[in-house]
């Protein structure tokens, strides 16, 4: 049986994430926690987050979660969501520059071109996601399905081979990243109705192999 740990580090609406997981996996155990024992005992890790990156990284640090998260990301199915995804890159230009977990090599950048083009920032609402690789987490989800986004910064990974999905806002940007047992999404699957719930269902059933 799956045991899913939703990492609770004081950033954002974890209840939405845990409710959506409970909805798609009624047999799974969903725990919202920052305890080392819970994270180690979990079969699957969900790393959500909303807000600003500096607070995110300092909360992770003060709760001694950096090492635990890196360890978990090296061995079990691991899903980053929104700010959780951004924290997985090497560096973010938000808050005058913040170093991230470095699980993906690359930068997190502000939607400068979008703002200059007169588009609204944050990029908020339902946008299409182009699946850039076959992946167990895309199973049952039509290519170009819309997901719900709300963010002002986007991930710009160094390795295009790690891009699992792209979306467009003034320019193409990375909507999903994947490597081995790690998957990360900029959008909110827990708020993306059918397509989002399907992705979460796929994650709960995923063994971390691609």
């Amino acid at each position: 049986m799956s045991r899913i740990a939703v990492i609770d580090y004081g950033m954002g609406n974890l209840r939405s994430v845990s409710k959506a997981l409970e909805n798609v996996a009624p047999d799974a155990q969903v725990v919202v926690s920052a305890e080392a024992a819970e994270i180690q005992a979990a079969s699957h890790i969900v790393f959500p987050g909303v807000g600003a990156i500096r607070d995110c990284m300092s909360e992770l640090q003060s709760r001694d979660l950096l090492g635990l998260l890196k360890q978990a990301a090296s061995e079990k199915p691991f899903l980053g969501i929104c700010l959780g995804m951004q924290a997985m890159l090497s560096f973010s230009e938000e808050n005058n520059g913040v170093t991230g977990l470095g699980l993906f090599s690359g930068q997190v950048r502000y939607f400068k071109q979008a703002a200059a083009a007169g588009l609204k920032v944050p990029h908020m609402g339902w946008n299409q996601v182009y699946q850039r690789q076959a992946h167990p987490l895309w199973q049952g989800i039509a290519d170009t399905s819309r997901f719900y986004f709300v963010h002002s910064y986007y991930a710009d990974p160094d390795k295009t081979v790690e891009i699992a999905g792209e979306s467009s806002y003034a320019h193409s940007f990375t909507a999903a990243l994947a490597r081995d047992n790690i998957f990360a999404v900029q959008f909110h699957p827990e708020k993306s109705q059918h397509a989002g719930l399907q992705l979460l269902k796929n994650f709960v059933q995923w063994d971390g192999q691609v």
Partner: peptide, 8 residues
């Protein structure tokens, strides 16, 4: 509502 409806 939030336990049954998965949109913002």
């Amino acid at each position: 509502v939030a336990s049954q409806v998965f949109i913002p």
